[in-house]
Design a protein around this nucleic acid. Structure first.
Lengths: 129, 129
DNA sequence: GCGTGATTACTCGGATACAAGATGTCCGAGTTTGAGCGG
DNA sequence: CCGCTCAAACTCGGACATCTTGTATCCGAGTAATCACGC
């Protein structure tokens, strides 16, 4: 029960793109150096963000990754869902038992966290407190 | 990023002990059958709950697991912390950078979930609406 | 000067390797209950 | 009837085996910009 490093990399990449390179595409090598990750691995992570529509990729020379159109709206939850998936953090997997009260409580608590993460847009971090 | 099955088993065991056997010790075999788990594995999980002081174990024949003294106060968060640990779900692990804004947001959201789980006592589920 | 091809700098996707943690099993050791047996 | 011993029913703890998932690497394919060359 931990957030993966991939989520960490994805969030930092988004923050960097928004704050320092809103227009020009940035190569994966540059992004990887900033965070001390292997470019190949970061590329794999960013592909997920592309498929979720959070960023765009530009092929060819001078290519790289760039922000999508609606960049102002990207929330923490968007990034997390793109990387970790949208499945519930808890599933009871106990047979018949119709509805599991424990499951209900867990899902409710999970929603509380997601609500916070949905409210927080990444762009808000750029311009400090 | 998912809650482990162990947490699920632990929560169900706590609920069972509170609702159906507040005094008598219950053998791990009986508890395991109820949930379709191997007794050996469940025993390993319950040992964590014992070490955290949430339940007591009774050795010898007719032994088993029984509720501790302050059973009314056990919350979801207590059980989860006993099984999953109390470490933060997210750590930035990005070098110098003094304080990471992303880390702050994540921890804050995590706290929101924990607050909900701390409020919800397991005993409250027993007498459901 | 200009088109055409080759080179270069990129991303994309799949295949693969590696490590760590979750899950599950097995067995020996210690502990208590209860039954059996001898006095 | 009493006390002793012994077996049975338990948990405890560690050591293992397995399986999934996260982490990471490598390479071939495709694509776009740029450079080189020849006309």
């Amino acid at each position: 029960m931990k957030f993966s490093k991939a989520t960490n990399y994805a969030l930092h990449t988004m923050l960097f793109l928004i704050s320092e390179a809103p227009d020009k595409p940035v190569g994966v090598q540059h992004l990887a150096e900033k965070q001390g990750v292997s470019p190949a691995y970061l590329s794999k992570i960013l592909t997920k963000l592309v498929k979720s529509g959070l960023i765009d990729s530009v092929s060819g020379a001078n290519g790289g990754y760039t922000l999508g159109a609606q960049r102002k709206d990207v929330s923490f939850l968007d990034v997390i869902h793109a990387i970790e998936g949208t499945a519930s953090l808890f599933n009871c997997c106990l047979n018949g038992e119709k509805e599991c009260l424990i499951q209900k409580v867990m899902v409710s608590a999970e929603k509380a966290m997601e609500e916070k993460l949905k409210m927080q847009k990444i762009v808000e971090l750029d311009l400090g407190p």
